[in-house]
Amino acid sequence: MNMLSASSNAVLSAVFWCAITLAVYLASLFIFRRLGSRPIFHPMVFCIAILAVILFYTGVSVEGYQAKTGLLTWLLGPATVALAIPLYSQLSSVKQNGVGVLLPIVIGGLLAPILALLVVYFLPMEAGVKLSLLTKSITTPLAIETSQHIGGIPGLAVVIVIFTGIVGAVFASSIYRLLRITSPQAQGLALGTVAHAIGTAQGFQMSQKVGAFATLGLCINGVLTAIVLPVIFYIVS
């Protein structure tokens, strides 16, 4: 009887914290739209700030919160599968422009982790921290598993991935204006390649076409990085 009530309590608090997360997300979205949908006020920034305050006042640790909202993180798996649908609708344009699509993705996919590693290479840091930078541009579910393979710290890898995504989503439109990138294909492909699913979500905000090409970049770079990185580390070690 005691065990039953303990487990129903756990379910109740899981439902409670998922509901809080949903409410905070909707509130952040509302604030974001109220402030004129400027990328600098990305909903994720408000989510972190509001939830940090809530966690502080309720005395719940970040680990405890993550354990209670495990359902949301688990749903990332099926949501990643859903990317097959926009990818399928862009298959014909991949066939038509094979190299035009693949070349920028491969260059972007190589450049992002190499540049990140170069900046911190000579600093006195744990190797695990540096290795966690290598999966920075691929989507969270892929990054966790790939980081495990190459000796990074999965928890840190996720944080780096998400920070990368937010930076990409926030600054993309300014960079595009600066470099006069007007084609939706180029805008989307770069966002998806460099800033994965968070960049892709930003892409869908810009237009369906930008979002579809972002999906393309996200998928191809994710697949390539998830395959290539473990192979390189296997050869080196």
């Binding site: 035009g100 993705i105 260059i107 972007g108 450049l111 992002a112 595009y176 470099l179």
Partner: peptide, 22 residues
């Protein structure tokens, strides 16, 4: 710094190359 620099530079380079290609 490392994450911001690498993200912004590769975002610009990728988009630029892609636009030229297309």
């Amino acid at each position: 710094l490392s994450i911001m620099l690498s993200t912004l530079v590769s975002l610009g380079v990728t988009a630029w190359i892609c636009q030229r290609q297309w």
